[in-house]
Computed example of a mutant assay.
Amino acid sequence: MTQRQRKFLGTIALFLLIAVYAAIAVGVAIVLQVHNASKFTELLYYVVAGLLWVVPAGLLISWMQKPDT
């Protein structure tokens, strides 16, 4: 697979990853609010959820940038 193909597929996968991740993160946040979680718990969740998507996105971008063999 060429780098150009990987970038195309990776871009689509990245958009899907962000959309699915955001939907799941919002769902968990709603559950936290319904169960009256403490403000500290909510803050901790938002910090973790706001940064956690970077790990799979970084791996995907790293794969996209591999040179052609």
Rank of each mutant, 00 (worst) to 15 (best):
V28W: 06
T41Q: 11
F15M: 14
L17I: 02
L32S: 02
A49F: 01
T41L: 10
V55N: 03
G58Y: 12
I24R: 10
Q5T: 14
Q65H: 14
L51S: 11
G27T: 01
V48H: 10
F15E: 05
Y21P: 03
V55T: 08
T69F: 14
V34Q: 08
L51M: 07
L17T: 08
L14S: 06
A29P: 05
I24E: 11
H35S: 08
R4W: 00
V28I: 15
V34H: 13
T41I: 05
A49V: 06
S62F: 11
A49I: 00
I24N: 13
W53E: 11
M64Q: 12
L14A: 11
P56Y: 04
V31T: 12
I24K: 06
V26Q: 12
K66W: 09
V48W: 09
K39Y: 08
V26Y: 12
A49R: 01
L9D: 09
Y46F: 08
R6A: 00
I61S: 07
A25M: 11
M64E: 06
G50V: 02
L51W: 04
R6F: 00
A13W: 01
I30Q: 08
K7D: 01
G50R: 00
M64P: 04
L52W: 07
V48S: 03
Y21L: 03
I12K: 06
I18F: 10
V54L: 13
V20S: 12
L44R: 12
A13P: 00
V26A: 12
G50S: 07
A13C: 05
L16S: 07
R6W: 01
T2N: 02
V26I: 14
M1T: 01
A23I: 12
T11H: 04
Y45Q: 06
L44G: 08
N36I: 03
